[in-house]
Design a protein around this nucleic acid. Structure first.
Lengths: 343, 343
DNA sequence: TAGAGCTATGGAAACGTTACCGGTAACGGT
DNA sequence: ACCGTTACCGGTAACGTTTCCATAGCTCTA
């Protein structure tokens, strides 16, 4: 443990601690020569100011936190790029935190808030419901990105912001597109956890579209992936199981592109041709959709727009130029090569 | 800003601050009833201990830091899973930090070290060379995962650990495999930055294999991707350029699976069949390699083993059960469907 | 019954910074 | 010769914790 402190530096330089502090934080009231001498000593001793002590005193550090559940999901990559750029532009510090599977993102935020002098928080991914009580404890503005506005029913909607697509509506659109192609036996790969989430909305959209067109939903065509984390293999296994169950289906709707890629492979391995035998559609519009074979039809969420808007909104709330809002972006159905009219 | 402090809690409860502290940290010397009363007040006021102040005093918090350059790269996903599990098992706290493109990971570590009471640091990804001077400033054990042992020539090898594959040797193996299939015109997609990195080693392995088999390397077949971040589109564009240059090649070696996936698409778009016309091989052994069409031949790094070993090693160094080491795992050539004997 | 040994508590000194408040010296202008 | 500035700098009080030490009230035991 580097035991050396600002006091030690001051002693070695034969100056007062405040002078050292001034040197470090390049304040004005200091002789350039003294400063040089001090910096010299600092460099050669390898002294680093203790941040805890700093934060304890300081009150002006401008910092925003971004908490991402499942930061390794490539879905977030373009969003994170935007965030980094935006934050740097405004001269804020950024702390990006991956929230682990067993952690509660709001708890993490709560902790972070005391540790750093946060000015705002952005949540990405994660559960769509949170305890209103907890969110209220957060004393800085909060915006949820990619998660719709019904995060906590019992929480006044103007205590937090959301920027997202309308998952139910977009999902509806996707399924209606498939129906328009003549599909009636449409299977869906979705997530089984019972925590309320955006995924539930996608399922709702699916059911809604079927209903509107008088197609009776078939329990057996609704498949749940095992784990909450989306992986190719998860999509693969679930699709395999679906195929082996012998249920007939002509289209497969995966609520995430990652699952869809796994599904494509499973279908191919079983000798089922896409799109000749089965049409496949994904959701999210990740980069991979363009690169798989066949190119995946998917619902693109405007990730960049969402994150840009989330940042803009957060900053304007911080600057009191705006109150909380709930912004909905339209999704875009990208037609790839994985879907076609039914024969 | 939640202005309420431990003093305030003490005041409201009519007890001393030390008693409150005892309650919070569930120490033994406290009347259960007092404790209950205090906890009650804490809950209803929403008080959260200030972590900066805490860390300033505390000296026993067991915490390890994991710094990942490009945490959104799916390559790290399985490694991060391991880390989380391992850390939790040992009852350490974990701070996982994404290091941004413009940051220096050692600087970030240095800062973190003062902020938290770190016991150890793991670096994943990132540059393969660091200033020895800086690394020495780190006062806790450091292990680099996926980065070989020549991180800083001028630094004594027993001041840090590494766990990785031998990138040069594995790369050699890959190219030799292609040569064994009869390929002579082997193009490579690599990275152009001049910061020393593991990628350089892979290029070296490529050149070495060619030389050993008496094949003269062709400048025009060595292609550099634009940006340091690997993306599908980066692989796509660079491959497109290669194809359009008219250079003849029968095999394409991409130093990352991500690039390879982009390459596959570019080849397909140009009507070049894989593996009939061109063999393609990747590197890393990411999950995607198994799911693309055709399945990618790739060099699998044992990500899970590497990260497990890295954790084990770090902990044993922390516990003084071991000194620094440099562990090399063998890679494994996974034969997919993207390579074949030349006609 | 005096002292020893608990249990539960409060007081206060750190931890390493920063920021405010003064103080000294030098210097120029009247 | 005096005063007002200015340029530097040092001392010290916070910041919110934890931890050591002291103490008060007990219960035991010899």
């Amino acid at each position: 443990m580097s035991e050396i402190t600002i006091v030690e530096i001051a002693r070695r330089c034969g100056v007062g601690v405040s002078t050292v502090s001034r040197a470090i934080n390049n304040h004005s009231d200091i002789n350039p020569e003294t400063k040089k001498r001090i910096m010299e000593v600092i460099r050669e001793t390898g002294y680093i100011p203790n941040n805890s002590a700093r934060n304890l005193k300081r009150t002006d550090a401008k910092c925003i936190a971004v908490l991402v559940r499942g930061i390794t999901n490539p879905f977030f990559a373009p969003m994170i790029e935007v965030v980094e750029k935006e934050v740097e532009e405004r001269k804020y510090a950024l702390v990006m935190r991956h929230v682990e599977s067993h952690e509660d993102e709001v708890d993490v935020a709560l902790e972070l808030e005391k540790e750093k002098r946060l000015r705002g928080i952005i949540f990405m991914g994660g559960a769509a419901k949170h305890s209103a009580e907890k969110i209220k404890q957060l004393s800085v503005p909060v915006v949820f990105a990619t998660i719709g506005s019904d995060i906590a029913d019992d929480l006044s909607r103007n205590e937090y912001s959301t920027v997202s697509v309308d998952d139910e509506k977009e999902s509806f659109k996707v399924v209606e597109y498939l129906i328009g192609l003549g599909h009636k036996k449409i299977a869906i790969l979705t997530e089984g956890s019972d925590t309320p989430s955006i995924v539930k909305l996608r399922l709702k959209g699916y059911l809604g579209a079927l209903e509107k067109h008088g197609i009776k939903p078939d329990e057996k065509l609704i498949r749940y992936v095992d784990r909450r984390i989306y992986t190719f293999s998860n999509g693969y296994d679930t699709t395999k199981a679906l195929i082996e169950s012998g249920e007939k289906f002509t289209a497969l709707y995966c609520i995430s592109d990652v699952l869809a890629v796994g599904a494509l492979r499973a279908l191919a391995d079983s000798g089922i041709k896409v799109p000749e035998d089965v049409s496949v559609v994904g959701y999210d519009g990740q980069e991979i959709a363009e690169y798989c074979v066949p190119r995946l039809t998917t619902l693109r969420q405007p990730m960049v727009d969402i994150s840009k808007e989330a940042m803009k909104l957060l900053f304007s709330i911080i600057d009191k130029e705006s109150g909380h809002k709930h912004i909905v972006f339209p999704g875009e159905l990208i037609i790839g090569e994985s879907t076609r009219k039914i024969k």
